[in-house]
């Protein structure tokens, strides 16, 4: 139990990741998938930042006091990059959602799949022969 309390951040981060993961793979609504991706992504950031934390440390901005302990700046830098890249991919995702809605009139993936299947069947019927 004390182990779970000590590593609490890591355990809860995994719960958060799996909530986001579930939203991405199970929910058909594309906006919900994007929000699930955001939750997944932010919880990965949380994992990295938790790894960089040192007990009794302070933010890695030099104070001039030789006795200060600083938390690890490297995960912070990596995650800064990841946040910005994350918003770039989010923008592309939302643009795709807008286009899918224009082409299919829905943003539910099962409805889009049904329309694609119907098109496929119609194409096969047309190829089979104009006689019928």
């Amino acid at each position: 139990m004390s182990d779970i309390a000590a590593q609490w951040n890591y355990y809860v981060v995994i719960v958060l990741m799996m909530l986001g993961f579930y939203a991405v793979i199970a929910r058909g609504n594309m906006v919900k998938k994007m929000v699930g991706l955001n939750i997944f992504q932010t919880s990965v950031f949380m994992l990295y930042i938790s790894v960089g934390k040192i007990d009794g440390g302070t933010a890695p901005i030099l104070t001039g006091d030789a006795a200060s302990v600083y938390s690890n700046p490297l995960p912070h830098v990596l995650i800064l990059t990841a946040i910005v890249v994350g918003v770039a991919t989010t923008a592309v995702g939302y643009a795709l959602i807008i286009r899918i809605h224009e082409a299919y009139g829905t943003i539910e993936d099962d409805e889009v799949a049904a329309l694609v299947d119907a098109d496929q069947e119609a194409r096969e019927r047309a190829d089979a022969g104009p006689a019928s």
């Binding site: 906006v31 950031f45 933010a59 938390s71 912070h76 995650i79 946040i83 994350g86 959602i97």
Partner: peptide, 29 residues
């Protein structure tokens, strides 16, 4: 967790820009 730079980037980009992008999408779908 001592990551102040990450915090303000997350607040500006994650809570700000991402939400604006999502709202812009919602106006069309």
């Amino acid at each position: 967790l001592d990551a102040v730079d990450v915090a303000f980037t997350e607040a500006a980009v994650g809570a700000g820009i991402s939400t604006v992008l999502a709202l812009a999408t919602l106006s069309l779908v």
